[in-house]
Amino acid sequence: MQVKGNYMVNTTPNVVWDMITNPAVLEKITPGIKTLTVTGPDQYDAISEVKVGPVKGNFEGTLSLKDQVNLESCVLVVDQKSKMGNVVAEISMKLIPDGNDNTEVQYTGDAKMSGMLARMGQRIMSGVVSTLSRQFFQSLNKELEGEPSTE
């Protein structure tokens, strides 16, 4: 399944970069996350509980970042298992400054699903994925409001 979207974050790329590479922040802003354990640089074991529409369940597996180009782009690798089926995804993210201290995050990638998640159909799953991404970036913005800028 193709995953694609973009989101405006109200800060500069360096701040966004710091946040999405910081486990403490990730644990706060990733939707449904229960525990995030660091297993290596940009490598995590994650346990989450997702509830969006028809998708309800506990997910367990790994999250990692690769191909990092500092402050510009990286690839998020997701490998999560659940009773409803498994998700393996590689999503490239690009941080594009708009010149006014805002950052447009563009993401695009491919998610492979199995089991019930696959059978549910792409129309529903793509809706679920975009809801989860929106929640992620909304939380990121909220997190920003609560914290003083690092600049």
């Binding site: 089991g115 696959a118 059978r119 159909g121 792409q122 529903i124």
Partner: peptide, 14 residues
């Protein structure tokens, strides 16, 4: 089916 052999329209929604 997708390339992994998952039937991706296995419900009456699809």
């Amino acid at each position: 089916f997708d390339e992994a052999g998952q039937m991706i329209n296995a419900s009456y929604m699809d």
